[in-house]
Nucleic acid binder design. Structure first.
Lengths: 221, 221
DNA sequence: AATATTTTTTAGGTTTGTCTAAAAATAATT
DNA sequence: AATTATTTTTAGACAAACCTAAAAAATATT
């Protein structure tokens, strides 16, 4: 069903997908920046992706992924995030190191490999950065992830990731029993320093600074 | 130290290495066959590898891997065999399916990934086909693997692999307590049917047919 | 509205790895 | 030894993905 894609094509598709998530219109220049190439090269590739029906492209007007293109993108992202999970959870990589390696692994296309890896990892829903992993049908748990600072009051949410790697912070979180998967809710936001009062079930509430809250991503339930 | 290699270059190097193991001189035509391309393309690549000091090449006379080239080959083979081990031992792939997937995985170059994978797998010495896996310094347990039919009498050896996938055979071997890693020795060879009398420590000796013995590869200790 | 600026596309070239067809070197045969 | 056959290399082209420089279109500014 999906055509065979070169590594270059996959990288463009993935970049277009990511840019579409952040900005509702993607420009040639922004894409060139993202894939680290020149605008003229982007135009060439856009034509090629259009021909493969992965992209709807009107010269000078703009472009966006077709339904097929979107499917292809989710497939690539699935592979990327599963490998990231593998690297962190099985091979003990730290978060900074994985992206580059996953960039290579994501281009290994065997469907069977990906599905078996998924099963081996226990069908994770989020990667180590807290980003959702599309399932084998391309369904993705839409980006409900947000920094803790944006979580509304009295809404239970799960910690999905921590942005920062500093051992200080990790130790602090561990000490407060905050781990990936921990459920919590915000009881109060203090306006004079933007600190936040948190409550974890069966524990006493406690405060965290704005900086800490900003480094924690959560997923409301 | 080793130059960055393209996927194409890696495939040529790997093929040259394998052909050198089987035949003491490798020809342009044989190599073209092995990498599924045309002799003219091979000549082009030979020049390139020569320039990178991976190959000693004399036009019309012949070629072989340089010391550096050999090192590069062993590195690629290490990656290939570690991934094969991963696919079979962790992801439950069967032996037929792994080669193609490992052909892609072997080109992921992160040294750290490979070494961590090696550790994760418990530093295996042989891949699922029974072929030796080079260590991180490129040292390889030279091919002592042989079919059980060629093992001398009264020499203890370890089963390293089974050539055949038939469930009959696998069940038979399992029933006789013969698995990868099992130590055994030959007590007698019967000349009228070439069957073999085997002995496993702490067990009664038993016979296997020539066909069965031929499907089993062993490594003398 | 006319001009200036920015963005995007076209035109033409380069590199990598491939190809076919022809030439050169080596090997085999009479 | 001379001819024939095979192997290998050269010559010239092509596709993919990139580049620079120039042209075209869209956007912004006066």
């Amino acid at each position: 069903m999906l055509p065979n894609l070169s590594v270059a094509e996959e990288n463009y598709i993935k970049s277009i997908y990511h840019l579409q998530q952040s900005f509702e219109s993607v420009t040639t220049n922004a894409l060139a920046d993202h894939v680290k190439t020149k605008p003229a090269s982007v135009t060439d590739m856009l034509k090629k992706l259009q021909q493969k029906n992965l992209l709807n492209y009107n010269p000078y007007k703009g472009f966006k992924l077709s339904k097929e293109g979107n499917k292809a993108a989710l497939n690539i992202i699935r592979r990327h995030r599963l490998w990231e999970s593998f690297l962190v959870n099985q091979l003990q990589f730290s978060w900074e190191e994985i992206h580059e390696v996953a960039e290579q692994l994501e281009h290994v296309t065997s469907r069977k490999l990906v599905d078996k890896l998924d099963a081996f990892l226990g069908f994770p829903k989020f990667d180590p950065h807290g980003d959702p992993i599309p399932d084998s049908n391309g369904k993705i748990n839409q980006q409900s992830q947000m920094p803790l600072t944006e979580l509304p009051l009295n809404t239970i949410a799960v910690i999905t990731s921590v942005q920062n790697q500093s051992s200080d912070l990790l130790a602090f979180l561990s000490n407060r029993n905050m781990h990936i998967g921990t459920k919590l809710e915000i009881k109060q936001k203090l306006s004079f320093d933007n600190s936040i009062e948190l409550k974890i079930k069966n524990r006493q509430s406690f405060h965290v600074s704005e900086q800490v809250a900003n480094a924690i991503n959560v997923n409301p339930l």
